[in-house]
Nucleic acid binder design. Structure first.
Length: 1099
RNA sequence: GGGCCUAUAGCUCAGUUGGUUAGAGCGUCCGCCUGAUAAGCGGGAGGUCAGUGGUUCAACUCCACUUAGGCCCA
């Protein structure tokens, strides 16, 4: 028995049952383990931040991961999917700080780093176990990934692998200490990540000052004009930057009582007040090296800094200088701007920090020392004004970053930091990226490629607490550095006490086994050398280094599992959001390509954001976020997954629209269920089973069967090609179309009669085999995308435990028949045209008509069409088709049209004229062309010979007939309704009414019989129609007898319907009375059917 | 300022290597069909294929620029 699937259960209940079954049969485990490790498809899971909240966009990226992994599994690969957790870093630290009510970094130190990190660890493991979080979402959406044995970035073994990697970098001389300009909160005394900075942007009123820098060695008094919104940085000014390709002018500027010579970008002359006259113009590159006098002399005077400044206070060139705002001359304070810093490195300027870590002006600036940096702004401006170096001062409102925790204005601030010199192998990263298959390619070439092209060194140290400790031990003078590459490397190091003093106790091999390297534990180890002790650099490393190390660290490589690592490296496939371009995609590439010489992944699918249905970004404040659990339970995971893939390609921003998902449920999933339901209904009646011995060879099946099988095999072929190319959208759309259009709306619609008529015979068997084949293959094709529905279908068809243990279908080329597909398409076009004409003529499809006329170009076309003739006739309810060759009939009017593609190539400019001439070809000319196979057309003075195939002949009209044409196909319809046809039409009306009535009767199954129909009507024509179609009516409505009778309708003394019990037969005899209106005539019917007691009781 | 992407019907999207009636779904109005269907079919209304220029016999398609929007970087 094929079970009924269209029960009232919700998608959620339906899918929960499947989840339970998977669990019971360990389907995921089997789907991996039943494939040998000879054929491995390697997948890397990007670790989610452990205390993050899963959102709807994660459902998208996890769908992309899952679909490919399931597909490759079905293709016979062993696809292990080790889950992972990103557990270190600020997200966790901040959550704990919030819990403890901390405001400052020193709160953590006072609280105790050991206790703090203990709390971090507890939160990490609590989140991993959290039943309402990631794990629940992942399971509910059927993303198959091994979450029972995940890699966890804070585990000692994971950290040890990272240490190994960092030592490799160090051994190659790629780790160095430098400055890094970071967004920095002076109150919290910590650098902020870019993500945090983005949280804190707000509008601020800041001074906007134009400052004059006096040019040295100039014939006349002359000033460079620069602009800034941060006067406090002027104290650290060391240079002025101009763009080498921008033109700069010297002007004589007159305003109020002043006249002065100024230099600025030509494009920004509008910034000047008063009148000006341009005296000269040069390119920025020519200004390079010109010197100017410092605004203040604090630094020059200083015994420490002074000597380093010989090279400073001059014009430098850099292309980052813009002419958007300001003056085109940018003041440079290397300690307080990323570009400034970079330019300083380029020109060899020192980095002088004039503000302390807590935001106060440093002692070296004797006049302002101790002032909060922002508070110093007005004082500095006043000083400049007194010195006559202030050109103009205004206040502007712009967006500026503030600390999202304490609201202090942030500063960009140079800090000591450790770097990996990725620039050393930038070229290799750039070149090897080209071997990665990016989907879409433009992200690989563009966004990622450009990023690699102007890569900067990677600052990897962080002055925080909960993270992978940086494994460098350094002597006091910084000259001796020891990189530790394993816990064993620590053997022999000396334990320090809490105050940092050596205890004489050494780190042993046993210590290495149980060692937890987290702070502060690791800071209590020091190495004794000749000169003293090497102590650990107290920093932790960037969490992105953690996740980028997962290819080897997840296996604790190289300390164990060498084989596992090598088998899995590089990954065949990864997939994440576009935000990971500079995140995980990059760190994976940068770390692993260095370590292993080849990129860590071969194929990537990148997905873009999910927007709400109006195209708005989702955010909590807008209140338009979508709860993934809610989406998954209301629509079912299948519908959500399918919609994500089919609505648009993953790498375009996607609009989330619940209505679209609901429509998909109705149109696709319900149609599929109904198609199955139709099959199951009749298969159960006929006791059909798929058996090898009764299987009908596809080649011996009907035109219709061979057609759908051809389409099916074409679909399999296409889907395989697309899936292999990491295109998931096309398969989803194609499967949808196949199920809705080809199977349901054409194959089943046109084949229904075969299922419900008569006994089991070869044709019926073929029909069952065919639809079974379609359903089973579709269940496999859709399994990667809709893992639930496909499995339900697969199970219902009795095909096995789970579709996810089955092989992906392969196409049989011999079954694909393109000629058949073409002629069926033509049959569909003709059917559509006939329905169009019926609409115009106001003749219902139920009314049979005598004939249609189809003009064809030649015999071959006619022969092709003959093969699908019956299908057309049945579909449009017409008795016969008349085929005519164009040339053989006078009634057909033809039109000639140029084949642009063919002719255009050879004719070139003449094309227009020739095409126009062809369009006016007479009927005689067309006939002549068809007979000879060519025609000579004269256009002005030249004659063009047009060969066969270069003109298309289309039958456009048939005189005296109703005609319609589309896609080059023309059909004429005979609209005459003879008396016989009219009677037959009425007969079909009667059948229709009775069929509708059958459906109204409770508990009346499609195969149940009506025993007797009695009818009464005053209409002569209806009487005639009933007489003429009696047999047909009996046959179609499964009725024993049909007879005319004088009955009262409805009987006054009885309910309608009523039943009598026949004791001798033990059955109920039911009487149902109905009156129908057919063509304005009344027909009264008494329908009599028997039901046995058992059936009746049900009612 | 730089890079990438996008712009086709009221909405969501197709549109193959340039080739001559630019399509589908949703929505809307009229009609039809239905013995699996919460479906389906036919018709009506709705398009300056964002704009300008270029290449070409021919441009939604290729090129350049412009405009608008998005993302990333600065």
């Amino acid at each position: 028995m094929y079970p009924e699937l269209r029960t009232q259960t919700s998608p959620d209940e339906r899918e929960q049952q499947v989840l339970a079954r998977w669990k019971e049969h360990n389907v995921f485990g089997r789907s991996v383990n039943e494939h040998s490790s000879d054929k491995v498809f390697s997948f890397y899971e990007g670790p989610p931040t452990v205390n993050g909240v899963p959102g709807i966009h994660h459902v998208l990226s996890r769908t992309l991961k899952d679909v490919i992994c399931r597909y490759k599994t079905m293709q016979g690969f062993r696809v292990e999917r080790k889950g992972g957790w990103d557990t270190h870093g600020l997200p966790v630290e901040l959550a704990i700080e919030k819990e403890l009510g901390f405001k400052h970094k020193h709160d953590i130190i006072e609280y105790g780093v050991e206790a703090f990190n203990k709390k971090c660890r507890e939160m990490v493991y609590a989140n991993i176990a959290n039943p309402a979080g990631w794990r629940a979402m992942t399971e509910r959406m059927a993303y198959w990934v091994d979450m029972d044995r995940p890699y966890i970035t804070c585990e000692p073994s994971y950290i040890e692998s990272i240490w190994w990697a960092l030592k490799q970098f160090h051994d190659k001389g790629l780790i160095y200490k430098g400055h890094k300009i970071q967004p920095y909160c002076p109150r919290c005394e910590t650098a902020l990540s870019s993500h945090e900075v983005a949280l804190g942007y707000d509008t601020a009123k800041d001074p906007s000052v134009y400052v004059k820098f006096r040019r040295k060695n100039a014939a006349e008094e002359e000033y460079f004009l620069a602009w800034t919104t941060t006067p406090w940085t002027l104290l650290a000014n060391l240079a002025l930057a101009v763009h080498p390709d921008v033109y700069y002018v010297t002007v004589i500027n007159k305003r109020k009582d002043k006249v002065e010579r100024l230099v600025l970008a030509e494009a920004l002359l509008t910034k000047l007040e008063g009148e000006y006259e341009v005296v000269s113009m040069v390119k920025g590159s020519e200004l390079e090296g010109h010197q100017y006098e410092p605004l203040f002399d604090f630094l020059v005077r200083d015994p420490e800094y002074g000597p380093k400044l010989a090279n400073a206070y001059k014009i430098v060139n850099d292309t980052y200088v813009s002419t958007e705002d300001g003056t085109g001359i940018v003041h440079q304070a290397p300690a307080f701007g990323e570009d400034d810093y970079r330019v300083a490195q380029k020109y060899g300027f020192p980095v002088i920090v004039t503000v302390t870590g807590s935001g106060e002006i440093a002692d070296v600036i004797t006049d302002y020392k101790g002032q909060f940096f922002k508070d110093a702004d007005p004082h500095i401006t006043d000083a400049l004004k007194r010195k006559g170096l202030l050109y103009r001062k205004e206040t502007i409102e712009h967006t500026y970053p503030f600390c999202w925790r304490c609201d202090s204005p942030l500063m960009y601030y140079a800090r000591d930091s450790w770097y990996i010199r990725v620039t050393d192998y930038r070229k290799e990263l750039y070149e090897k990226n080209k071997t990665i298959n990016w989907q879409p390619p433009e992200i690989g070439e563009g966004r990622f490629g450009n990023w690699l092209e102007d890569l900067k060194d990677w600052g990897i140290s962080r002055e925080r607490f909960w993270g992978t400790p940086f494994p460098l031990w350094v002597s006091e003078d910084g000259k001796e550095i020891k990189a530790v590459g394993s816990f064993e490397d620590l053997v022999g190091a000396e334990w320090l006490d809490d105050a940092g003093n050596p205890t004489g106790k050494l780190f042993t091999k046993e210590d290495a086994i149980t060692f937890d390297p987290h702070k502060p534990n690791v800071d209590k180890l020091a190495f004794k050398t000749k000169s003293g002790y090497l102590r650990r650099v107290p920093d932790v490393i960037d969490v992105w280094f953690d996740s980028g190390s997962m290819p080897f660290a997840q296996y604790h490589y190289p300390f164990e599992n060498k084989d596992l690592f090598e088998q899995a490296y590089p990954a065949d496939y990864i997939s994440e959001g576009i935000d990971q371009t500079r995140g995980w995609f990059y760190t994976l590439h940068a770390i692993n390509t260095f370590l292993f010489g080849k990129p860590p992944y071969k194929n990537v699918i990148v997905n873009d954001m999910i927007l709400d249905k109006n195209g708005q970004k989702m955010s909590k404040s807008r209140g338009n976020t979508v709860n993934p659990f809610e989406a998954l339970t209301t629509h079912g995971a299948d519908a959500v997954r399918w919609n994500f893939l089919s609505s648009s390609v993953p790498w375009k921003p996607k609009l989330y629209n619940a209505d679209d998902i609901a429509e998909l449920e109705r149109k696709f999933f319900n149609t599929l269920l109904n198609t199955y339901g139709f099959f199951a209904l009749y298969a159960n009646i006929d006791g059909y089973e798929r058996k090898a011995e009764s299987f009908i060879e596809p080649a011996k099946r009907s035109e219709m069967d061979r057609w759908i099988l051809s389409k099916l095999n074409s679909l399999v072929k296409e889907c395989t090609v697309w899936m292999d190319g990491y295109d998931l959208t096309r398969p989803a759309r194609a499967i949808e179309t196949f199920v809705i259009e080809e199977v349901s709306n054409w194959y089943v619609r046109r084949s229904r009669r075969r299922f419900w008529k008569g006994e089991m015979n070869a044709d019926k068997q073929a029909a069952y085999d065919t639809i079974y084949e379609c359903l089973l293959t579709v269940s496999k094709l859709m399994a990667p995308i809709a893992p639930f529905m496909s499995d339900i279908l697969y199970n219902a068809l009795g095909a096995g435990v789970s579709v996810h243990l089955a092989a992906y279908p392969t196409a049989t080329d011999s079954i694909i028949d393109t000629a058949l597909e073409r002629r069926m398409q033509k049959a569909q076009i003709i059917s559509s045209l006939v329905r169009q004409m019926r609409e115009r003529a106001k003749i219902k499809v139920r009314q049979p008509l005598a004939r249609i006329l189809v003009p064809s170009g030649n015999r071959v076309e006619i022969e092709e069409l003959r093969k699908v003739e019956d299908i057309i006739l049945d579909e449009v309810n017409v008795k016969r088709v008349e085929h005519i060759e164009h040339g053989d009939s006078d009634v057909i009017k033809r039109k000639a049209k140029a084949n642009y593609k063919l002719l255009g190539a050879q004719l070139g400019k003449e094309m227009k004229n020739v095409a126009a001439r062809i369009a006016t070809m007479s009927d005689d000319e067309i006939t002549s062309y068809e007979r000879q196979g060519y025609i000579d057309l004269q256009i002005t003075t030249t004659t063009h010979r047009i060969e066969r195939g270069e003109i298309e002949i289309i039958a456009e009209d048939v005189e005296g007939w109703l005609v319609a044409s589309e896609y080059g196909v023309t059909v004429a319809l005979d609209t005459e309704i003879t008396e016989d046809l009219a009677l037959e039409g009425l007969g079909r009306e009667v059948i229709n009414r009775i069929q509708n009535t059958r459906k109204e009767i409770e508990h009346f199954k499609v195969e149940d019989r009506i025993d007797e129909i009695r009818y009464f009507t005053n209409s002569i024509i209806l009487q005639k129609a009933l007489e003429a179609n009696k047999d047909k009516i009996k046959e179609e409505t499964l009725t024993g007898s049909v007879s005319s009778a004088m009955v009262k309708f409805p009987p006054e003394d009885k309910p309608n319907p009523f039943a009598t019990f026949n004791e001798s037969k033990g059955i109920y005899i039911n009487h149902l009375f109905k009156a129908f209106n057919i063509e304005d005539e009344e027909l009264k019917v008494e329908i009599i059917y028997y039901q046995d007691q058992a059936n009746k009781k049900q009612g």
